[in-house]
Design a protein around this nucleic acid. Sequence first.
DNA 1: TCCTAAAGGACTGTTTTCAGTCCAAAGCGT
DNA 2: ACGCTTTGGACTGAAAACAGTCCTTTAGGA
Lengths: 227, 227
Amino acid sequence: MLRPVRGGNAFEETIEHILQTIKLGIFAPAEKLPPERELAEQLGVSRATLRDALGELQSAGYLEVQRGRYGGTYVSTTPVHRKPDDGPLDPAEVEDVLLFRAIIEPATAALAAKADLSAAARRHLQVCLSDVASSPAEGYRPRDARFHIAIAELSGSGSLVNAVAETRSRLNGLLDRIPLLGTNLEHANEQHVQIAEAILRGDAPAAERATVEHLEGTASLLRGFLA
Amino acid sequence: MLRPVRGGNAFEETIEHILQTIKLGIFAPAEKLPPERELAEQLGVSRATLRDALGELQSAGYLEVQRGRYGGTYVSTTPVHRKPDDGPLDPAEVEDVLLFRAIIEPATAALAAKADLSAAARRHLQVCLSDVASSPAEGYRPRDARFHIAIAELSGSGSLVNAVAETRSRLNGLLDRIPLLGTNLEHANEQHVQIAEAILRGDAPAAERATVEHLEGTASLLRGFLA
DNA sequence: TCCTAAAGGACTGTTTTCAGTCCAAAGCGT
DNA sequence: ACGCTTTGGACTGAAAACAGTCCTTTAGGA
């Protein structure tokens, strides 16, 4: 029960955090990050430290910077080709993530369906949905993550948004360790439609069921690589 | 979606974290903390910083220190009389905590019931149960928290233990803002028994139902103070 | 009785992080 | 063409946090 108070030094944590927002599709390619002064404040870190982190991400190819008025820091449109992290999967970590996800995401979807959604919220969900559906295979993960996080946002609970985002991030870390097989993307997309429709028509049990089914796909994929 | 990378400086975070382990009953009164060198490493903080934090907690009356071999840092047996933090309750925070808790705790209890438990695990649950049942009103909260965390530990999922502990900690923060009325402690204790029995006999649906009922008590208590 | 081990206590020099200030680029409006 | 504004870029001195080392206290064992 005694977890570390902090995950490393501020510099590394900042890099990691910004990288996550990109991998989770919260900042999409070509999108502009907030100005450094603002971002530093939001992240609770000094501008100097933030700049060190941004510099690192820039030279790693994740970010591009333009100076001057109306300039800023932009997410790179050309995705960096990550060498596949192929350490072996940790079975305990896999089970833990899948289990936690199976608890929170269906409940989140059900809540989103129960909430009464503004027109803007509905539109946002549909945008995320079509965005992931029309995505090429290599940029799929961030958009997929974005869609699931969008659902959490509809639920209206900040804790759930955090939990879904963090869990998704851990999941991404695991998925990075196995080869990407694009066979079941169509299947996943069909399930996304089911979930979104159930939420939009306010059918909580259907949203929950569809989410459970959807998660089983990823779960069996990952479990397959454990054997 | 841009949360702060760190909650403050290392010193404050360390104080807060240790205080939590006490308030959550993870370190019970009169219990000995790990040696400073070890604790510092577990918390991912330097010994100097840890010592600053321990010193603060000591002079605030939470800890007592004995030097020499077989000495150490002990949780104070005389509880500090906290002045009631009575800022107004934030309704959004209340709803968020209650909602999140209502999602994870019943699922946790169900999981614990499904797991096949070692004899030691069963005994541990019973110890926590009788500990909270026989607790005087002023030391009730930490033992109550300890019981709920013990259930999460039975589930075998580290993420759930973290989530339950953190949620409980937020809940404690809210409960500190309202007067303690001991009327429903007996009711809560009865529900604890129900939950523990359901888990021990492996009856997941009953464990889940009993937990839902139990949480409703705290929920309506807190909601009552919003109006 | 004295020695040793295990713990807290104290100090030092280095590295990290910070807040604050000023500089440089670049687009927009007058 | 000029200046204003918004952005990233760079520097400085102070504060925080660190790792490492040594000191002090205390109980148990040889």
